[in-house]
């Protein structure tokens, strides 16, 4: 089971992640990320907002994929929840692109009927949830993978763009491990139907929705550039 989780979170899984910088390319252009410390801050920011949101959706999708009925409807509802949590068109496209890439590899690596119940270009966390279920993993693992993947792509992109010492970048991500675990666990709890802090109503509507308007802005400015290395 652990090996399946490691496979899912491995940056070598050919699902297209390497062409996305998770906003870091534009953050570097804007002078927000320039050294290991500012990278760590950026990653934490991303982890606790977009990462937590993705983790909640991934855990919920994993749950939905594990049930036979009404799987298609649940996944469609979660896809709409992902849209509502991703108002930036650039980020929507990036998420759906990566979702499609993961479906392509996931379908062959872990064949299961649930793939057919996903919308054609699903948001990445949904594909991740289905992949986790298909690989015999649980919602907590799906959340964990989503939280982890929310920072690793950006870390690698920063390393390439700033020619940073790879050991330093590895250290930065390693030091965030406890926070990644906490975000994954929190999101998994929310997906299990825990009450939302200000509301008390459980259910997919109240999955984490952490947003950072700065990341939205960076993504939109980035999308307008025609001189970029990364798709997002």
């Amino acid at each position: 089971m652990t090996a399946a989780l490691l496979t899912l979170a491995d940056s070598r899984l050919p699902a297209g992640g390497h062409t996305h910088s998770g906003g870091v390319e534009q953050a570097i252009a804007a002078g927000i990320v320039h050294d290991p410390r500012s990278l760590e801050v950026f990653l934490r920011r991303r982890l606790t907002t977009a990462g937590s949101t993705a983790a909640g959706l991934a855990a919920a999708a994993c749950r939905a994929a594990g049930r036979d009925e009404p799987r298609r409807a649940s996944l469609a509802r979660l896809d709409a929840e992902a849209d509502a949590r991703t108002p930036s068109p650039a980020l929507r496209q990036a998420s759906r692109q990566q979702g499609r890439g993961l479906v392509r590899v996931g379908r062959r690596a872990w064949p299961t009927a649930a793939w057919d119940d996903l919308p054609p270009h699903p948001h990445h966390p949904l594909a991740l949830g289905v992949a986790a279920a298909a690989a015999g993993l649980g919602p907590a693992d799906a959340a964990q993978a989503a939280a982890y993947l929310s920072i690793t792509g950006s870390a690698t992109a920063a390393q390439r763009l700033l020619a940073m010492d790879p050991i330093t970048v590895a250290t930065v991500t390693a030091r965030l491990a406890a926070e990644v675990d906490a975000v994954g666990a929190g999101a998994d709890q929310a997906a299990a139907g825990g009450p939302a802090p200000t509301d008390g109503e459980p259910g997919p509507a109240w999955l984490p929705a952490g947003t950072d308007p700065l990341l939205d802005l960076l993504a939109e400015v980035h999308a307008d550039r025609d001189d970029r290395y990364f798709a997002s």
């Binding site: 699902a15 297209g16 692109q97 392509r104 590899v105 798709a231």
Partner: peptide, 11 residues
């Protein structure tokens, strides 16, 4: 992009 993770090109 052309060898190890061809996703973007397949898309």
């Amino acid at each position: 992009a052309i060898r190890d993770d061809i996703t973007a090109n397949l898309d």
